[in-house]
Design a protein around this nucleic acid. Structure first.
Lengths: 222, 222
DNA sequence: CGATGTTGCCTTACGGCGTAAGGTCAACGT
DNA sequence: ACGTTGACCTTACGCCGTAAGGCAACATCG
């Protein structure tokens, strides 16, 4: 094992440092700006050096996704399952909003990392402890994650909850419509624009609770 | 307007033909294989010629997304809202499974096309006719689409419902685990593998119905 | 008829991408 | 002292999106 320095200059690279720098760069510049060359540059190194620590860019992305999952709250299998599942869903949403590039990657990756596997195991364990059988747990897991992913995707595609909202929507919709066309869409758009107090993000928790309560009510009681 | 032929050879390009060829190519080869050069080649043309019909690749993708939305069943605002919404959700799922490349694009596009706007307007109109106010319709719309998108994303990321399922999962999970680790995940994986009759896809409709019923029950009766 | 745009496609070129192949050179075990 | 190792670099290839400009066939008008 090398003594943690190559010539006296910078600390040596490692798979962890490469992946962490990838997360940082994707956070800062977006997923499409993450190239091996830029990543290497941000580490003070040439592009090809990265390939001594990750096999290729796909493996880098796998590692980055695992870092993201490692940040999500691990549910514990005690007390009412809804409490822990709610906490982990809120955490998952926060993590995904912090790493928007990850949303499109999470479910498209093969080769899940250990943190991902541990996380999934914990969620399933929580549902089993909550009284679901395996099949029921699978369904609930699927529905819950569908909700969280879908919600975050829509949240991220909103025209920047802060700032220029009105102009964009008005332009896209009022741009040359035949006067009375798309009345419902226009009504909703104007309602969005005028009602400053309405924030889409506020609908996450109520919707999730509604879903959790319904699932608990559906749960076959033993 | 030109007489539909340039010299006697092929029919001339058009924005529609370019976008349609893009959809076709993405369907056949996947989103990452869609390049301007290959698209041009599939049309018997050079890459730069495409830029006389679409401004850039982003606009091409916008057009392709609009084509996808145009394929989705338009709900009508008659009868119980759940019936029409259920039909449009089933249709949306089918369309997305037919065009898997579209899932990652749908909500990330700016500049929605006319078919997209018309579709959204119809869904909102259906919910308003069903008795929701604008705010409620927005919430229901968000929840429903979160469910459909999230479900399809997971469905697409499954290890090919048809064919080699077992080997992949078993390899990824059993690959060097410390014997008793991740028990719940292993249990679910083996349950998936052994139970041939269980198909994730079959859970779409029940989950959707559960959600629609719950939303109808929550709807403020006038 | 010829001159004059206009249209529809092509040629060339630039900078950036992922990565295959192989080189360099300091640090280490012997 | 010396061969080995391994971290990092250099070069190069074939892709990509697309800016700039060319050119031949047509529509229009004198």
């Amino acid at each position: 094992m090398p003594p943690a320095k190559t010539r006296g200059k910078r600390p040596p690279l490692s798979r962890e440092r490469v992946v962490a720098a990838g997360v940082e760069l994707a956070d800062a510049e977006g997923a499409e700006a993450l190239s091996m060359r830029k990543l290497a540059q941000s580490l003070g190194v040439e592009a090809m050096s990265l390939y001594h620590h990750v096999a290729n860019k796909d493996e880098l992305l796998d590692g980055m996704v695992d870092v993201v999952f490692a940040e999500v709250h691990l549910p514990v299998a005690e007390g009412p399952w809804q409490v822990e599942v709610r906490a982990r869903c809120a955490s998952l949403r926060e993590v995904l909003l912090r790493h928007p590039w990850a949303v499109g990657l999470l479910n498209s990756r093969r080769n899940p990392g250990m943190a991902t596997l541990v996380h999934h195991d914990a969620v399933i364990g929580c549902l089993l402890a909550g009284g679901f059988d395996i099949r029921g747990a699978a369904q609930v897991f699927a529905m819950i994650d569908a909700y969280v992913y879908g919600f975050v995707v829509q949240e991220l595609s909103l025209p920047m909850e802060n700032g220029e909202d009105e102009g964009d929507l008005a332009d896209a919709i009022l741009g040359g419509l035949p006067e009375g066309a798309l009345p419902h869409l226009v009504a909703m758009a104007t309602a969005y624009v005028t009602r400053e107090d309405y924030r889409f993000a506020n609908e996450f928790a109520p919707g999730l609770d509604l879903m959790l309560d319904t699932l608990e009510r559906q749960r076959p009681k033993r």
